[in-house]
């Protein structure tokens, strides 16, 4: 059942990319436990505007855990305390009356803070652009049932494809590595028969683009815990294997 709780928020406020940031404390009183975390911030923002203070900038869009726009570091945990849950789907029933909540943006050198809790995640798009696709021009596709894909293969590929690109894996990683994101994207396509033609080129290109922006994986497993879509780190191992194979195969293919 719903009830009302009072919280103390410690929110990172930073006026712009170059500006210094700091924590500002806000009291969030009378918050219904049925509210989502972002609705709680909406309420705080309404009150700030009423008081003539600029609202806290945070990003969200679909608010149903699929677009990957939202993402906050809540009490030192990416997307907060509930497992397999994006920030927008986290509800205040996960908190108790009197809780102190620290809210920070994702942090990584390649995720610079734009303002308050909003960060720039375009480095992830660069990884996709470097090879996260199957090259098939519109109209060039054969009949969809021409190539059967074993159900198990399709399901495993789907587990990887479920990535919503939120960046929680990077935020949660003490190395700011983007291995889970990249591995999910690489394996989604590498596992499918359609993706075989570019498998080795894709793996090499995407991994090396990733390395330009993000740190090196030390297998803590924090990313897997933070992932709102439960993507397992097994994909990282498979990508590591594919990468070394790619280094051999691509050399052979290049002659």
């Amino acid at each position: 059942m719903s009830s009302e709780i009072n919280l103390t928020l410690q929110v990172w406020r930073q006026p712009g990319p170059q500006a210094e940031g700091r924590f500002v404390t806000y009291e969030a009183s009378g918050i219904s436990t049925d509210a989502s975390f972002l609705e709680m911030l909406d309420i705080v923002n309404e009150r700030l505007i009423e008081n003539g203070e600029e609202p806290i900038v945070f990003e969200s869009d679909c608010r149903e855990g699929i677009c990957g726009t939202c993402g906050l570091m809540i009490n030192g945990q990416a997307h907060g305390p509930q497992k397999s849950t994006a920030t927008c789907q986290l509800h205040m029933r996960s908190f108790k009356d009197g809780d102190h909540i620290v809210i920070e943006p994702w942090r990584a050198t390649s995720f610079p803070v734009l303002r308050d809790l909003a960060v720039d995640r375009r480095a992830m798009d660069a990884i996709i652009a470097s090879g996260g696709y199957i090259s098939v021009n519109t109209g060039a596709a054969p009949d969809a049932n021409l190539t059967p894909v074993p159900k198990e293969t399709a399901d495993t590929a789907f587990d990887a494809a479920a990535c919503i690109g939120c960046g929680a894996c990077v935020a949660a990683c003490p190395n700011s590595a983007a291995q889970l994101f990249t591995a999910a994207k690489v394996q989604h396509l590498n596992l499918l028969p359609q993706g075989q033609a570019q498998r080795w080129a894709r793996t090499e290109a995407m991994v090396e683009t990733m390395e330009e922006f993000f740190g090196s994986c030390t297998n803590h497993g924090e990313c897997e815990e933070a992932c709102p879509k439960d993507i397992p780190i097994d994909f990282i191992a498979w990508t590591n294997r594919d990468y070394i194979k790619a280094k051999v195969k691509n050399r052979k293919l290049a002659g």
Binding site: V136, G139, A141, V149, K151, A154, L189, G195
Partner: peptide, 15 residues
């Protein structure tokens, strides 16, 4: 087109 792009549509056991 979508299948060729790697969209993982649901499949039967026969693939």
């Amino acid at each position: 087109q979508a299948t060729a792009q790697g969209v993982p549509f649901a499949r039967e056991y026969g693939g």
